[in-house]
Design a protein around this nucleic acid. Structure first.
Lengths: 133, 133, 133, 133
DNA sequence: GTGGTCTAGACCACC
DNA sequence: GTGGTCTAGACCACG
C-alpha cells in the first residue's frame, strides 16, 4: 500500500471545504490506529504534493487540527500527533456519534421503521466490505 | 401544527446551499406524506417570506425541483406536486439510500463492528423518538 | 383574410414589451394604408381578445399612441386614427429610416462590402416575397 | 486605439440584456478580425471594470459564449477564443444573415419597393462611412 | 397577486 | 490574481 493510495481522498466536488476534508481524514486515520500519538506527520509541502492541493490549504487544515488539539507543532520540526493516550477512543467516539446523529436525524424525517433501517445499513455495510478500494 | 413551525428549518450556517436545503425539505415532506401529488405549494414570495429568504432563492429551489420532476408549474398559478402516484416511494427510496450510503461510508473508516454500530443507531433512534419537537 | 390572421402577430418570446409590439403593428398598418386617417380602431377589450393579451396591455399601447399623436380618444366612443393627411408618409419615413439605420449600423461592424450586402438583402427580399404567411 | 475606447459600448437603456450585448460585441470583434483564434480575452473582473458592469454579468456572457463554442476556458487562466479556423466566417455569416433577416422582415411591412430600399441603404451606408468614430 | 429574468454583491478554491 | 457559485434586489408580462 503506497502513500499515494492512502491519501488520495480529496474530493474537489464535495461541498465541504478541502481543508476540512483533510482534517477529517486525519481523524479517521487516528481512529483506525494508522496514526499513533507522538507520530510525526508530513510537512505542509509534502502533503500538499501528495494530495495535489495547495500547501496553503494544508496549512489551514493543520492550524485547525492544532486548535482541536489533535497535533502539536514546534518551530523547525515536523508536526506530531498529540501525546494524549485517550486520543484514539476520543476521536472514535466523536466520529461515530457524529455519523450516527446525522444519520438518525436524516432518516427520522422519512417514514421508515428502525428494523427496515437497520436492514438497509447491514446490507450496505456488507456489500461495501467486499470491495477493495 | 402551524405552517410557521413546519417550514422554519433553513440554516445559513449549514454547508449546503439554502436552495438545496429547500429542495431537501420538500422531498422529506413528500416522503412522509405531508405533501400529496397534485397538491399546490406556496408561491415563491410566500415561502420566501416564511423562511425569511429571498424569493429568488426559492425560485432556484423550485426550478431544481421542476428539473427533478417533483413539481409542475405554469405561469400565473401556484406550482403543484407532480401527479405521479409512485412519487412518494421514489423519494423515500432516494432519501433512505442516500442517507445509508453516507452513513456507512463515513462509519466504515472508523474501526467499529456492525453490531456495535447497529446498537448505537437503535439507541439514538429510540432516544430521539421520545422528544416532542 | 380574417381579422384574426391580421392581428395575430404578438410574440411572447420577443424582447420588446408587448405593448410596444402593438404600437409598432399599428404603425405598420398605417404605413401600408390598411388603416386610414379618421378610421376607428377596436376597443381595448376587443383587441385584447383578438390578440389574446390583457386589455391592460392594450390600454398601455393606446396611451403610448396617443402621446405619439397617432390616435385620438374621446370619452364614450372608439378611438380613431388621427386626421392628419400626412400621417401615412410620416410613419413610412419613420419606420423605413429606423430600420435602415439599425441595419446599417449593425452591418457596418461586420467586414462586409456594400454590394455583397445589397445582394443579400435582394435575395432575402425576393425569397420572402414568395411566402404566403 | 486604446483598449478603453474599444470596449465602451454597453448601454443600460438598450432593450437587450447587458450580457447579450457583451456576447454580440465579441462576435463583432471576431467577425472583423480584431479577435483571432486562440487569442486570450480579458478576465471577468478586468472586462467588468472596463465596461463598468458587474463581473458576474461578464461571467454570464462568457458562459453563453462558451456554450456557443466561441471561447474555451479552464480554471485559473484567461479564457481564449476557440481555435476554430472557420470561426471568423461562421460568425460573419451568422451576424450578416441575422441583420438582413431582421431588416427585411421589418421593411417588408412598409409599402416600399426593393429599389427604393436599396437606395436608402446605400445612402446611409455611404454617409456613415465618412464618420471617423 | 402569479411565475420569470437580468444584474449585482459576497464568497470559495486555487495560483 | 484566476474561474465559479449562491444569494439577493429590481424589474417585467400577465391576471
Amino acid at each position: 500500500m503506497s502513500a499515494n493510495e492512502e491519501w488520495a481522498v480529496i474530493s474537489f466536488n464535495n461541498r465541504d471545504p478541502v481543508y476540512l476534508q483533510v482534517v477529517r481524514h486525519f481523524k479517521e486515520r487516528i481512529a483506525t490506529g494508522l496514526l499513533l500519538p507522538n507520530q510525526t506527520i508530513p510537512s505542509r509541502r509534502e502533503l500538499g504534493a501528495l494530495l495535489k492541493i495547495n500547501p496553503n490549504t494544508v496549512q489551514k487544515a493543520y492550524k485547525e487540527m492544532e486548535e482541536q488539539q489533535l497535533i502539536v507543532t514546534e518551530p523547525n520540526s515536523h508536526s506530531r500527533i498529540t501525546s494524549d493516550a485517550e486520543l484514539l477512543s476520543r476521536i472514535r467516539m466523536e466520529l461515530a456519534s457524529e455519523a450516527v446523529q446525522v444519520f438518525v436525524t436524516a432518516v427520522r424525517k422519512i417514514n421508515i421503521g428502525v428494523d427496515e433501517l437497520v436492514e438497509l445499513v447491514r446490507r450496505e455495510y456488507a456489500e461495501g466490505g467486499e470491495r477493495h478500494d
